[in-house]
């Protein structure tokens, strides 16, 4: 086959290149720029090399934040994925109630992050919040501004409330794509409910569940707004996740160099994890083979 070489074609991708440059590459380069320099103000910069990266890798504060972050992601995945599947399995398959359920499930997804944070911040307050006040009246010690466990529970429950719907909706879509014949065959084969789930529903949902896990992992790994609004990262540093700490460092302390170095490592970590997910997912597709 003869390929026509036409260098003018580059002009056609130029608009995209310009857009991407301004929206992503150039801002990212400023971060790279900060990460290798130091400044004492007045817009005077000194070359610092990889100093900030070395510092950050040795910073206990950052490792602690990473630890909290991973723990948080692990907890919410461990709750949201099974819970989402459970909800999807119990949603009506068709009819008016299916639509009602879908709308109700979508509601939390439509609420802006900071509003979700505010709702739970107020909901959990001991003085005026319905939840906080009720628990307090029942004699259960609950105060997310002072108690680490209470703060964690609040943040986790809030995230579960906000995002389990997404998992449920994805799982539901996966379930809906299973032809009736599979369930009928399972009945004929006298399969138990558990076997129907294990050998029919779960394999058919595998694809969408991978997407759900990826989305929920990435999102929880980068979570900022909601815990910031509810706990502000406290008590102490108990709910200071990576992005909260990053913002504190960059805008609170104005340590632009270390913050930039850290941002880049944060970004690369996320890129790496996404790549792993992508590879696993495409392999899964290949195994499926032609349908």
């Amino acid at each position: 086959m003869n390929k026509t070489v036409n260098q003018k074609a580059w002009f056609l991708v130029l608009p995209v290149l310009v857009l991407v440059a301004f929206s992503a590459v150039i801002p990212l380069m400023t971060v790279v720029n900060y990460s290798v320099q130091d400044s004492f103000g007045d817009n005077v910069f000194f070359w610092a090399g990889l100093e900030w990266f070395r510092d950050m890798l040795q910073s206990e504060r950052m490792w602690n934040a990473l630890g909290r972050q991973l723990l948080f992601s692990a907890i919410i995945l461990a709750i949201q994925i099974p819970l989402g599947i459970f909800v999807a399995l119990n949603m009506p398959k068709k009819g008016v109630w299916a639509s009602v359920c879908l709308v109700l499930m979508s509601l939390p997804l439509l609420i802006p992050w900071n509003v979700v944070g505010t709702i739970w911040q107020i909901f959990g307050r001991v003085d005026i919040g319905l939840l906080g006040h009720t628990l307090d009246a029942l004699g259960i010690p609950y105060n997310y501004t002072q108690n680490t466990l209470a703060a964690w529970i609040t943040v986790v429950v809030m995230d579960v409330w906000h995002w389990t719907s997404l998992v449920a909706l994805l799982a539901y879509a996966g379930l809906q794509s299973i032809p009736d014949a599979y369930y009928q065959a399972a009945k004929i084969d006298q399969a138990s409910r558990w076997k129907v789930f294990r050998y029919i529903e779960l394999p058919k949902m595998a694809g969408v569940l991978m997407i759900a896990i990826l989305l929920r992992f990435m999102d929880s790994f980068m979570i900022y707004t909601e815990p910031f609004v509810v706990t502000g990262g406290g008590p102490g540093n108990a709910t200071t996740f990576l992005s909260i700490d990053l913002v504190k460092m960059a805008l609170g302390q104005f340590d632009l160099g270390p913050a930039a170095a850290f941002s880049i490592m944060y970004f690369l970590t996320i890129l790496l994890i996404s790549w792993v997910f992508y590879t696993v997912m495409t392999n899964l597709d290949r195994q499926e083979g032609p349908q």
Partner: peptide
């Protein structure tokens, strides 16, 4: 229910348990 009837039925389009 179907399971109690102990009947075998084969459908028009193939149904296999993919992961097995």
């Amino acid at each position: 229910p179907t399971a109690e009837r102990n009947i075998a039925q084969v459908f028009q389009f193939p149904v296999v348990y993919d992961t097995m």
